[in-house]
Amino acid sequence: MAVQSEPDYSLFTAQEIEFVAEDELIEIVPNMRMDPLNLICGDFGPFLPQIAAQVPLWLAVALKKRGKCTIRPPEWMSVEKLTHVLEAERDSEREFQSLPFHYVEISRLLFDHARDDIPDGYMVRSLTEDIRDVRFHKVQSSLESFDGRTSAVQIKSLSAMEVNIVRPFVARALQSFQKLDSLLPDTDSMPNNQPQQADKAAKGRRVLRGR
C-alpha cells in the first residue's frame, strides 16, 4: 500500500530481534556480592566474587556496563571455532554451518559491551563478520535459484537476524510467484511443487523424500 501509517508493527525490527536474543543465557564472573534476583523472567544469583553464574544476556551487559563482572564468551566465539566455521562455510556452496540462532545479535552485544572479555577480540569480530557475509551471499544465491513454483521454502539453518533480513523480500517475492503461478495451466505444476530447500545443511533429511 502506498500510504502507510508507520511503523508497521507486524514486522520485526532489528532491535526487536536483538531484544529476543537478550534473553539467551550467558556465563558471567561477578566481582561483587549481590543477593539473588527474583525477576519476572526467572531467578538468578546469588552473586559472589569469582564464582561464575548464568544470567540472561541483558543482565550480563547491565552488570558489565557498571563494571560489576566479566562476561565469558560462549564456546563458539573463539578464533579456532570460528575459523573452522568460516572455512566450512566457504567450502560449501549451499550448506550453512550450525551456529546459535542468535549468533549475530550475541556477537554484536558482546563486541559493543564486553570487548575486553573476548580473547583475540579483533580476530573474532572480523571472523564473525566474514561468516555473516559469506552466509548472506549464500542466502542470496539460493534465493536467486528459486524456480518460482514452490509452495513452501525451507530455510533450516538460517539465524534469527538472517531470517529477518531476507523476510520482507522473500515473503513478497514468494507471494508474487504464487499469484503468477496460479495463472498457468495446472498440468506441469505437479513435479515441482515440493518444498524447495534454501539450504541443504543436513544430509539425508527427509524433506524431499517420497518422490
Binding site: S151, V153, I155, V163, L208
Partner: peptide
C-alpha cells in the same frame, strides 16, 4: 499428492503461506 512431499521436523524453519 504434492502435499505428501512435505513434512516438518522440530526446529526447522519454513517460509509458508
Amino acid at each position: 499428492a504434492t502435499d505428501l512431499l512435505m513434512e516438518m521436523e522440530p526446529g526447522e524453519l519454513f517460509f509458508i503461506p
